[in-house]
Design a protein around this nucleic acid. Structure first.
Length: 593
DNA sequence: ACGAAATAG
DNA sequence: CGTTCTATTTCGT
């Protein structure tokens, strides 16, 4: 077939997506606490490098990932603060995330790292589009709250707020004669909403952000970079030019280095570079991981002879790569990204703590480290997974007994995971084969960790002996001979508490916590004794479960109390046998979502 | 469910 | 200390 030239993927430009990237985030957090820093060259340090610096410092030649000594040489007056305790950054990120969420009507807000947030404002924009008077766009009103038409701001809908791509697309002279298409109008609305939220963010919280507005996550994230800091850019169609959103999106994405496309990381970009260059791409062995000496652009890959979704699949598919990777990348090369902005999350999917070591090869050290990690992890669980008990039961907060509202678990992780990175043995020639391979082992998380009447220290010690040591022995059966360069501890598989989230429609279908009895049945209390002796002396306990005091868990939290074998659907109230509830819940998820 | 891999900040 | 630490998603089994 001569005409079987592969067509570009179909665009779906029905959404309006805003991407936020807080400017020099770590610096901004410190500046929030000490505003005098704002006018000074200021940087945040982790280990021996500058992880980020404010724009005053950047103007003097400082940059991210710079060695401290280089920074001080270039700019002796620089103020440097240590940023190794990331809890303040995490807290600030959470606050700003909730603030941005308050502007969504559909709850679609997704965080990436601490300093980036996407929001899907399609419905907000749609509503306001319907409210526009197309004869008087100059004096428009943007309603920001679904429930109150008075909440909002005045704006001029004859143009975009902030910058546009392409730069001249902003137009602005469609006063009377020209009919403006809906996509243009919707993007303008998105740009004005973004401007409003940026201003609120700055005035109410003291944070500035760089923002991108487009019809999908990919384009919104990339286009923001055109104007930073504290500015915004919208990808627009060209007035009166058919299909111009596709054209403009393509010209924009084409200029990017292939590895700069979100979703195309080190492995995929190397494969694509090798394909285009017909040889392996040279890697920049500098400080930045994944750096390349080559400059292979999206255009190079996209216009390479014979490229197609099928060809990309052949090229990129392999162990670890997603199914449909060819079609996915084909879409990215064309600025097409149909992935949804995730729903707001109140708890993380996973909490993990890790530390790296020059050398870790003895049991006493290991036990100390594992216990320390366990303490940190349990502390983090209490910070991130504990919430106020919002009880309608009037009695709970009236009494003057210290005014303590009860803390309850918002989610229960079901799984505990221990990961290590064994240090490779030396080769005969004395060099180390470099391998960053990790190995992990998971087990049910013992439910005693949810006890709030015991201290974190107590629970950490208990967790060490009842779970972590057995798990470690599973990973490293040999008594010795191992040497670790990293240990990671994580809890995952969150089971969230049901109830009324805000936003539209109670999202979480309450799921009964599987009875935790038997969770410990695979654990044996293991006594490694002191140091390296008597490792094999293992004290078996038939029923550890009997020893475990499970408190604060279970009592009516998950179950509606009916113990007749049936469950009540948290959504529609239907009473069903337990075995039918899983499928029933799935029905709701599909039906509502 | 579990373990590994890829990706990202 | 080779690439620190944390988090999400997806795949194969």
């Amino acid at each position: 077939m001569e005409s079987s030239r592969t067509l570009p993927p179909t665009r779906k430009d029905g959404r309006i997506i805003i991407h936020f990237d807080y400017d020099a985030f770590y610096c901004s957090v410190f500046e929030h606490l000490d505003p005098s820093l704002r006018r000074l060259p200021f940087a945040v340090q982790q280990k021996q490098i500058i992880v980020t610096c404010n724009y005053v410092a950047r103007a003097k030649g400082l940059h991210k990932l710079q060695l401290i000594r280089d920074a001080r040489r270039i700019c002796p007056e620089v103020i440097i603060k240590l940023g190794e305790d990331i809890s303040v950054f995490r807290d600030a990120s959470k606050t700003l995330y909730k603030f941005i969420e308050s502007f969504t009507w559909n709850g679609r807000v997704e965080r990436l790292g601490f300093d980036e947030v996407w929001m899907d404002v399609t419905d907000v924009v749609e509503w306001n589009l319907g409210c526009l008077n197309k004869r008087a766009l100059e004096g428009s009103w943007f309603q920001t709250r679904k429930d109150n038409p008075e909440d909002g701001f005045a704006f001029d809908a004859t143009g975009c707020a902030g910058h546009t791509y392409p730069a001249e697309a902003s137009g602005g002279n469609d006063g009377q004669e020209t009919e403006v298409d809906d996509l243009t109008l919707r993007l303008r609305l998105g740009s004005h909403l973004a401007m409003h939220i940026r201003h609120q963010l700055e005035h109410q919280h003291g944070y500035t952000a760089t923002v991108g507005i487009a019809t999908n996550k990919l384009l919104s994230k990339l286009v923001g970079n055109l104007h930073k800091p504290k500015d915004q850019t919208t990808i627009m169609p060209t007035p009166s030019l058919a299909n111009s959103y596709a054209t403009n999106a393509q010209s924009f994405i084409d200029t990017h280095e292939i590895g700069k496309i979100p979703g195309i990381g080190f492995k995929l970009s190397q494969l694509l570079r090798a394909h285009v260059l017909a040889r392996p791409g040279e890697i920049d062995t500098g400080l930045v991981y994944g750096g390349t000496k080559e400059n292979v652009t999206v255009l190079d890959v996209r216009t390479h002879p014979d490229i197609s979704p099928e060809k990309l699949d052949k090229l990129l598919a392999g162990p670890g790569s997603a199914h449909g990777i060819g079609a996915k990348v084909w879409g990215l090369l064309h600025g097409v990204d149909d992935s949804e902005v995730g729903m707001m999350r109140t708890v993380p999917r996973q909490i993990s703590i890790e530390d790296s070591y020059i050398r870790l090869d003895t049991y006493p050290e290991l036990l100390k480290e594992l216990e320390g990690l366990a303490r940190s992890l349990l502390g983090r669980m209490r910070v991130d997974l504990l919430g106020e008990d919002e009880d309608e039961d009037g009695d709970s907060r009236e009494a003057g007994d210290g005014g303590g509202s009860k803390k309850i678990w918002l989610a229960y992780p079901k799984t505990l995971r221990l990961t290590t990175r064994p240090r490779q043995a030396l080769l005969p020639d004395g060099t180390r084969p470099r391998s960053f391979k990790r190995i992990s082992h998971s087990a049910p998380l013992p439910s005693f960790v949810f006890s709030l009447s015991d201290s974190v220290n107590t629970l950490a010690t208990k967790l060490l002996h009842e779970a972590l040591i057995p798990m470690f022995r599973h990973l490293h059966p040999a008594k010795q001979g191992w040497n670790l360069s990293l240990v990671n501890l994580a809890v995952t598989n969150m089971v969230e508490r049901g109830g009324e989230g805000k936003g539209s429609g109670g999202r979480d279908i309450a799921r009964m916590m599987r009875r935790q009895e038997g969770v410990l049945k695979d654990f044996r209390v293991t006594d490694f004794g002191a140091a390296d002796e008597q490792v094999e002396k293992e004290e078996k306990v038939d029923s550890v479960v009997d020893d475990v005091q499970v408190t604060d868990v279970g009592d009516g939290v998950w179950d509606d109390g009916e113990d007749d074998g049936d469950e009540v659907c948290g959504h529609c109230g239907l009473r069903l046998p337990e075995f039918a509830m899983v499928a029933h819940s799935r029905f709701h998820e599909l039906d509502v979502g």
